[in-house]
Structures are given as C-alpha cells and as structure tokens.
Amino acid sequence: MDKRSSVTLDSTQIENGKFTLEGPLASPRELNLMIPVEGITYYARVMADKSAMEVKLDTAGYERKMNNYVSLVPEVTGSAFNKEYGSYEALIKPFVDKLSAISESYNELNGKYATALKEKDEATADKYKVRLEKLKQDMDPFREQIDSVTDRYIKKNLNNVSAYLMSMKVVGYGLEKTMAWYDRMPPEIQNGFYGTSVKNQLDKLKKASTGAKAALFAATDINGEELKLADYRGQYVLLDFWASWCVPCRKGNPHLLKVYEKYHDKGFDIISVSDDDIGVWKHVLRGMKVDRSEGFKILGDGISKGYDIHYLPTKILIDPNGIIIGRYDSEEEPLDAKLKEVFGE
C-alpha cells in the first residue's frame, strides 16, 4: 500500500472449472484473483492467510461490471482473515448499499454530462453539472458513516483487518492518531504485511509533519523565473498543493487570497504547487515524471514526494527557520487559528 502498486504473485490454468494455487504467505493480506475470458476480465478479492482456503466463484453472479471488468463475489472458507473482514463488511453494508445506489445514479448522469459536453450543449451540461454536485453531497453522509464505523472498528480490534484498513488511511488519519493505534498493536500485527506498510507510511509522514525540517526544492515558476524554497528563509511560507480539478481546492482559493492579503506584508508568502495558475502569489509545477510507453507509470513525484502528498488540497506551513509548523487540508479554521497565533491577530 505504501508503494501504491500491485505485484503478480502467481498464475495457473483453470481445468474442468477448478484451479489450485499454493505457496508461502508470510502474513495475512488481500489477494486479487484475475480471470481473463474472451476479452472480459473477471476479478475477485480474497483476504488470505496461511490457511488452506477454498474459493468458489460464479461468473453469472457478479457484483458489478465496468467496461470489460466484472467484479465477482467469492465464497471463501478456511481463512480466518477473510471471515473477520466479512464481519467488518457487515458493519458497513447498510451504508455501502445506500452509497452504491447513489453512485450508480451519479455514473449514469455523468455519462450524459460527458455526452452533452462532447456535443457542446452547454445549457444541458450545466443542468447535469448541478445535479451531479447534488448527488456528490448526497453521498457524503454515507461516506462519513462508513468512516465512523471504520474508526470504531479499528479502535476496538487492532487486528490484521484493522492494520489493512489503516494502511489506506494513514495520511487521512494523520501522524498522531495513526501512531497511537499502531503503538497499541501486538508485535505480530505490526510486523505483518499491513503493519509494515503502516510503519513505512508513518516514517514518510514524520518527515513532512509538524516539527520536521521542510524539504528544500528548486523549480521554475509560471513566469519562467527560478524559485528556491531556501530563498524564503526568514519568513513564513505556506505550500499549497492543489489542482484545478479539485473542487475543495478551488472553493478554498478565495479564502486563501484573503489570508495572503492579510498577512503578506507581515512576512507571509504562499507557493502553490500544481499545474494551474491563479496569478497572485508564486506558482510552480510539482514536476511529476511519467512514463507513458506502457500505460501510466509514475517515475517521480517531484516536489510532492518531499511532503508525502496523497490528497488535495494539502497545505504545509513552514516557519522562518525552515521547520514545518502545520499540515492542513480543506478546512479553513485550523490554518486561520495558526496564522492568528503566529502573527498575533
């Protein structure tokens, strides 16, 4: 999870409707069975452990289909990890079902929205866009309920399933919360596949959190001028990682402008890191390097790597000595409170 990549572990042939895979598994982990048949790829997630497992799949009883990919619901026996994960899934199922129903409506409407844009029917596209935003808002309460159930589950159990769930939420949970739960985990969980992933992510996050020395970088800004973070020593700097497609980012820009105008003359500056320009403070590209020769492979995250950026917006506040003193998301109040503390108003 910390490398955000997948690895092919093994393959086998299906003969007479049956297949066998075997080999060592150091600790419980999620495995995905991928079955290509006549241009369609069936896939199923299995939460595997060291036990002998039996997995039954029915291609006629798929969960969902998207393009040429079909998600199957496996019937699994023999894995304690899979059974425990099933207990967690049962807790969130009522909210997942409601979320899925809205998501289907969203995807259907989004297809119509894309068609309207393609046909340059702006009036219809605008109507669809308003309805899409409403559907997004309708999904938020169910996402929040899922997050709440997940938090309670992790806090209560601290098992392999909890480690698996935490491995996908480290940045969202933040350093303090994640470390508090990680430190309470038994050693065998900490040293397992997902416990190790959480630890690796924590180590990276520590280097980009409050108290750490800000990673220096140099880049060319949108005006073609060289920009070095080291040149900003002696003043407070807010690194704003954002993008034009990020709705919370764009909603927050007017407030960020007010913050800039209020504190700029007192020794405060903003450096935005993205691929877009709002034309007031300094703005640079993050410098992501991509290899498109075989799909889409990220070779380097550029500036973002030094600050462990996984979602947008993320704002990093740096003091005059180059030390990170705050890490913020789209919520405006925590950043406002910190700037008020720093500048005394």
Rank of each mutant, 00 (worst) to 15 (best):
N68C: 06
L91G: 05
E30Y: 11
L91K: 15
S105M: 15
A101D: 13
V46E: 04
E89I: 14
L99P: 11
I35C: 05
A80T: 09
L109K: 13
L31R: 03
V96G: 02
F95T: 07
P94H: 08
K136M: 09
I40Q: 03
M66H: 10
L132S: 10
M66N: 13
L109A: 10
G111T: 06
E30R: 15
L109N: 07
G111M: 09
L31G: 06
E63W: 08
L33E: 03
T124Y: 02
E108M: 11
K118W: 07
N107Q: 13
M53P: 03
R29E: 13
K136D: 15
T41V: 09
A60F: 08
A52Y: 04
A44K: 00
D49A: 04
K98Y: 05
A48F: 08
I102Y: 10
P94I: 09
L72A: 06
K120T: 14
T124N: 05
D138V: 07
A123Y: 05
E30S: 12
E119F: 02
A44D: 00
V76Y: 04
K127V: 14
P141S: 09
L33V: 11
G78S: 02
D121G: 03
E38N: 15
D140K: 15
L72Y: 04
N67W: 10
S103C: 04
V130I: 15
D138T: 05
L99Q: 12
S71W: 08
P94Q: 05
E54T: 15
V130R: 09
L31I: 12
Y42E: 00
E54I: 05
T115H: 07
N107D: 13
A44G: 01
R45P: 01
A101W: 01
Y88I: 12
D126M: 11
E54Y: 03
P28T: 13
Y88K: 04
S105D: 15
P28I: 12
R64W: 10
Y113E: 06
K93H: 11
K129P: 00
A90C: 04
E84M: 04
E119K: 08
M47E: 01
T124A: 10
E38C: 02
N68K: 14
E108D: 14
K93W: 03
A116Y: 01
K134M: 12
K136R: 11
K134P: 03
K127G: 15
R29Q: 13
K118A: 07
K83L: 13
K98F: 03
D58K: 11
P141W: 09
A123R: 11
Y128E: 02
V55L: 06
I40H: 00
